[in-house]
Nucleic acid binder design. Sequence first.
DNA 1: TTAGTAATTTCCTATTATCGGAATTATTTT
DNA 2: AAAATAATTCCGATAATAGGAAATTACTAA
Lengths: 254, 254
Amino acid sequence: MSLPTTPLARYVRILEVLVSCPQGLTLTQISQTVGIQASSAHRLVNALCEIGLVDRRADSKTFVLGARMERLCRLAVAPPSVIDMAEPELHELVREFSETAYLAHLNGGSVESIATAVPDDGEMTYVQPGRVMPIHATASAKAILAHQKPDIVHRLLSQPLARYTDDTTTDPQQVMQELERIRQQGFAVCDNELDPGVLSFAVPVQGAEGSVRYAIGISGFSQRMRTKPVKEVATSLRRASRTLAAKLQQFHMV
Amino acid sequence: MSLPTTPLARYVRILEVLVSCPQGLTLTQISQTVGIQASSAHRLVNALCEIGLVDRRADSKTFVLGARMERLCRLAVAPPSVIDMAEPELHELVREFSETAYLAHLNGGSVESIATAVPDDGEMTYVQPGRVMPIHATASAKAILAHQKPDIVHRLLSQPLARYTDDTTTDPQQVMQELERIRQQGFAVCDNELDPGVLSFAVPVQGAEGSVRYAIGISGFSQRMRTKPVKEVATSLRRASRTLAAKLQQFHMV
DNA sequence: TTAGTAATTTCCTATTATCGGAATTATTTT
DNA sequence: AAAATAATTCCGATAATAGGAAATTACTAA
């Protein structure tokens, strides 16, 4: 193992030595293993400590990998998925409204629920991960559709629109009108259009350059959902959407 | 996110930005995200490339985490086990002798086979991972026992020693004598003492301060094993043992 | 193709961090 | 308590860095 020559190389060697020794190393052990002077090791290790890459243990004698380094490594090995990033927001919505919260995803020509969070009371829920959301009869799909390019919308609405309940909108023109309303008010509603007696709200999740591939929503039985102030629901959904959008952007996942 | 001030902090910010973007980033993206000049980003990223922490992709425009960084992160998240480290040596032994090679481990008062490598011809093998190796009737356990403190040896040999074949040594005194011979010749033999018709060789794996908790051995049917020059077998086992011992020490696992 | 723009790379010097020997202080060990 | 070992501080010579500017290269659009 050639001796590290540049400052950066020394830092890295120290980290590698510490990685290979989870129980920690003393300063002298580090300086000898890496092959640098004790005074240098002291300074370098302290610099690593200051930015959180290394921690000095409570006994104040041994050094171990710090929280920042561990987070970095965990992310590098297993990058968080969209679902991972959405989970905190979904749980927050559940906490707030005690209804099922879900994340939907536009994949090819169909929208699918990919993550859900349910209230503790574990009541039966209609939206489950993997469920395909008909584009004309779910809040999430409509929220997403409302922000697709016109040609895509036309193509998707040109296929037959199935009827699920008396309230299902099966006329493409009417759906188009609803998409316009969704764009204006910023959230989508789905009232008894797919699952009988179920009312849902959803908002789009803004991606880069205005693209929308995800929607966040909550869903529950009409009688309970109606008691919730629409304005509050919309505000909370938008907050969740914004937070998730920021995370996605941070990780360049949009 | 405060701007990085020290050189080290900048390197780390660059790595963090790259971690959060597995598909790669261009120099400008990096310099803007981190908040440093393009020229600085260029130099820093190149320095990271030179030591292998970052790779420039084939398209020569985007940068991704390098092999060294990935190795570092993988090790930090999931430190390699003794088994991982022993595997190359076991396979080397299999390649050389075309017999089953195995790693045994002293755990509490019993020795257990914890890893095996078998020849390609996939012949039935007696030693399988998890098998408990009787301390008086297997080469690996005897190799380990021969290097334990006298009081431990006495305690282990004071319990009844089961008979498995006509050749099983069940007299503690005789076992003690054999341990002495093992210490002298440096390897242990087990001939038809546990599994009928099976002959094994094993050597201890030296840990820190002369402690021994592992043994490496090969095992096979007597008729074939007898054809192998004992000296060569012993030499190869010792080489494997030394290599593994070095790795264990490097990772402070002994 | 040809401008025109953006991104990348090189160059440069003031600034800053590093290196490591030596001295000092703290901690063990004997 | 004395000696030995480890940790920390200090400091001047050395080396790396920062970032502006300029040169080069790659991309874009007319």
